[in-house]
């Protein structure tokens, strides 16, 4: 699947794009490539430059920071890359962000008047992404015939995901039988649940309340609704961001015509 060369020559554009595709807008939980925030990729030997523009100059500097740092780290994780340079444009804090990201500063160093670091904001948004992704995973199980009681009882060890396979197996009643479900929503959920360390041991409950606890069967419906709500919130904000980006592009085009 990887298109990356191993002999130390320059990375390909496709490899860089693949890496950037893993970076999400933390508020929307969608790839910055899919959201069209990436304006340009310049490759010069082991040096990679990436130009980013966000929907508005007012996008939270904390979110802009996270995306810029994640983009840098993803690209620099490629063996063929010596250095990534991120250039954020059209943002009210582009100077601080570009300098901070390219000089490897912390957020607190880049923004001395901020109240601290971005870790807490990132953790909160990760949690929301996890809750929203869980909705799709649970929906897949419901559609496969699971009931609430069975779903809240599923442990990590009950889930069998195979690389590249389109379906996953979920074992119930202590491995006495397996139900086949689409793999994608479960993989996507598990990726986030693992990333934040919520689900790691084989015996861990796979699905959780937004607060991170195992789900009581009586509150299953409410927890599921909260997952749906988290999705609606993200996609609504996505609608605002899309619209603002279109409006801004329109304005820039008009002023370029003047």
């Amino acid at each position: 699947m990887s298109t990356q060369p191993s002999d130390g020559s320059a990375p390909t554009r496709a490899t860089v794009r693949d890496r950037l595709d893993r970076v999400t807008d933390p508020e929307l939980d969608r790839s910055i490539v899919a959201l069209e925030y990436v304006d340009a990729i310049e490759i010069d030997g082991g040096h990679v430059g990436v130009d980013l523009t966000l929907p508005t100059a007012w996008c939270s500097p904390a979110f802009a920071w996270m995306m810029a740092v994640d983009a840098r780290d993803e690209i620099e994780s490629l063996p063929a890359v010596e250095e990534a340079r991120i250039t954020l444009s059209e943002h009210m804090h582009e100077t601080e962000i570009n300098r901070g990201v390219n000089e490897d500063l912390s957020f607190a160093e880049a923004f001395p008047d901020a109240d601290g670091d971005v870790a807490a904001v990132r953790a909160e948004l990760d949690d929301k992404a996890r809750v929203a992704r869980q909705y799709d995973a649970v929906k897949a199980l419901l559609e496969a015939g699971f009931d609430a009681e069975a779903i809240v009882d599923v442990r990590l060890r009950n889930l069998e995901l195979t690389d590249e396979a389109e379906s996953a197996a979920v074992y119930v009643r202590d491995r006495s039988f397996a139900v086949t479900v689409p793999a994608a929503p479960l993989e996507r959920y598990l990726e986030k649940a693992r990333e934040i360390g919520l689900v790691s041991a084989p015996d861990d409950h796979l699905f959780r309340t937004p607060e991170g606890d195992p789900i009581d069967p009586d509150s299953f419906e409410l927890v599921h609704r909260r997952g749906r709500l988290a999705q609606v919130n993200m996609s609504s904000q996505g609608g605002i961001c899309d619209g603002l980006r279109e409006a801004r592009e329109g304005r820039l085009e008009r002023s370029a015509d003047d």
Binding site: W58, S60, P61, A62, W65, M92, H93, F107, F111, D113, A114, D115, G116, D117, V118, V121, E124
Partner: peptide
């Protein structure tokens, strides 16, 4: 809702 420069303060 829409805010003025939140920095990392949410």
């Amino acid at each position: 809702g829409p805010t003025i420069r939140p920095l990392n303060r949410d």
